[in-house]
């Protein structure tokens, strides 16, 4: 989608959502993002309740950018990666902190991509980039719409390159994402955010 390529500046948060098949994509992107980054990366993926810390540990090991273990009311600062803990919804507060919520599962999930995307859109508006990866349910589409309505940029993984194409396909069908990119392109896209 070279034709509508534009420079993204003043981005404060990049939020990435995914489900089945998204871990491999994250592992092809996050380790190649170089320090320092001028925005925060927040990751919301569906995961097993029993998977307490393995995703954090794996990404912390692989990534150059420091991974923060999200606890309630942790400050959201540029330069770090934050991962939504299992079994909580992840929300964004005006005070630029992250908060947690154990309310009912939505789309059979907790965390839910829609909930975090909507909440991030409300606080960060046009300073937000939302990226939706592989997955086999419809979570994320409502959240992508919310990001667009608030003036943020949306990116969907090219369904052809996704292990599970339902989630990206559903988002493309119901929203008009700014970009549809394969894995390498997503990496290049993130690297070009907030150029000096």
């Amino acid at each position: 989608m070279e034709e509508n390529k534009r420079i993204i500046k003043d981005c404060k948060v990049v939020i990435i959502g995914g489900s089945a098949g998204s871990l491999q994509v994250l592992l092809q992107i996050l380790p190649f993002i170089e320090n320092p980054i001028s925005f925060a990366i927040v990751i919301v993926v569906h995961r097993k309740q029993s998977d307490e810390q393995t995703l954090e540990a794996l990404l912390a090991l692989k990534s150059q950018v420091k991974v923060i273990d999200v606890e309630d009311k942790v400050a959201l600062k540029p330069g770090f990666i934050y991962i939504a803990p299992s079994n909580y919804h992840l929300l964004f507060e005006k005070e630029k902190t992250l908060s947690l919520d154990t309310s009912e599962k939505i789309n059979y999930s907790r965390p839910t991509i829609d909930v975090s995307f909507e909440s991030a859109a409300e606080i960060y508006g046009s300073a937000l980039v939302g990226i939706l990866l592989s997955g086999s349910n419809s979570d994320g589409t409502i959240g992508m719409k919310a990001i667009q309505n608030a003036g943020g940029i949306t990116v969907v993984q090219n369904p052809v390159s996704a292990e599970m194409s339902f989630m990206p396909n559903n988002a493309i069908l119901h929203t008009q994402p700014d970009y549809v990119l394969n894995t390498e392109e997503i990496l290049a896209f993130i690297k070009e955010i907030n150029p000096d």
Binding site: L91, S99, I123
Partner: peptide, 9 residues
């Protein structure tokens, strides 16, 4: 109360 959650509720 934390506003983000309260607002959703």
């Amino acid at each position: 109360y934390s506003r983000a959650s309260l607002k959703r509720r």
